[in-house]
């Protein structure tokens, strides 16, 4: 696995995701710093007639929550670019011939690559957390957090950090599914683009199916991993729906496991022709 890490982090390509997150988060934070109050005033305009809001509503927690909501669309693409290249990249470069003529079992090689892809995903999501919360402190103060979901939740500032940590961990689980899916396509492809496009296509189609309330889709929804990807938001609910979180976590974990074994099965049977 150490060798896979060396290969991964010696490539400039690997850092694209980190740079993209850095740029996007900074843009959002600067934007929120400059125009955030107007935006929040607009969002809570209708509530202002009923509730009285006091203090600094634009704070690092609220901004981080907004960043997370917007970035969960982009992070899967960044994760897929690297995970989709893990096996197909070796095939495209022709380096499988070098690796698989060495005394390395295919199962070991694939497992090392799968774990490397998942650690990369974890690092990317952690970087997102560090950027949104850590760098956010340079622009904003802490304070109570307003969460607009189906209801409006106001979370006290000393009750927020653990929720962010848990949400990021759950978010990592969701991204591991995306990473696992593109890795699965990577096992059967000789071209790095195919797994990324295939993975993203499935993600988009499943997300649409998960969000449409049509009879047929409602039957399928419980089986789609995309239904559970936004489970990280549940940690900002009050009270937290632990049963729903556990169920979502279990289903996502099952997908991660199934994708791994499917990739292993495909890779084990694969003829190296490149």
């Amino acid at each position: 696995m150490q060798l896979e890490f060396i290969k991964l982090f010696k490539r400039g390509f690997t850092y694209i995701g980190f740079v993209a997150i850095l740029v996007i988060v900074l843009i959002i934070q600067v934007g929120m710093f400059v125009e955030g109050k107007k935006l929040l005033d607009f969002l809570i305009k209708s509530l202002s007639d009923v509730f009285l809001f006091e203090g600094e509503l634009i704070n690092v927690y609220t901004v981080s929550y907004i960043i997370l909501n917007s970035l969960w669309i982009h992070v899967p693409i960044l994760v897929a670019i690297v995970a989709g290249d893990m096996l197909s990249g070796e095939a495209a470069r022709g380096t499988f011939r070098l690796l698989l003529t060495r005394p390395v079992s295919r199962a070991k090689l694939l497992t090392a690559k799968y774990i490397t892809a998942q650690i990369y995903t974890f690092l990317l999501v952690s970087f997102l957390m560090l950027m949104s919360l850590g760098v956010g402190l340079l622009f904003f103060d802490t304070g109570d957090m307003i969460v607009l979901m189906n209801t409006i939740n106001i979370l006290e500032s000393d009750d927020v950090l653990w929720r962010f940590a848990a949400a990021f961990l759950f978010g990592t689980l969701g991204m591991w599914v995306v990473s696992g899916l593109t890795f699965l396509f990577s096992a059967s492809s000789g071209n790095s683009l195919v797994p990324v496009i295939s993975g993203m296509s499935i993600l988009i189609v499943f997300t649409i199916m998960s969000n449409f309330s049509i009879g047929v889709f409602d039957l399928i929804k419980p089986f789609l991993f995309t239904t559970y990807l936004s489970g990280w938001q549940l940690f900002f609910d009050d009270p937290v729906s632990w049963n729903l979180i556990l169920k979502s976590g279990f289903i996502l974990s099952a997908h991660i496991t199934v994708f791994y074994f499917l990739a292993l099965w495909i890779f084990y049977r694969k003829d190296i022709q490149s």
Binding site: K10, G12, R97, T101, P103
Partner: peptide, 20 residues
């Protein structure tokens, strides 16, 4: 397979490496 390949060296078709 794994044990026997440890006793073999090979260069198959194009010499492809990690260019970076």
């Amino acid at each position: 397979r794994a044990r026997l390949l440890g006793r073999i060296g090979a260069l198959i078709e194009r010499p492809d490496f990690y260019n970076y």
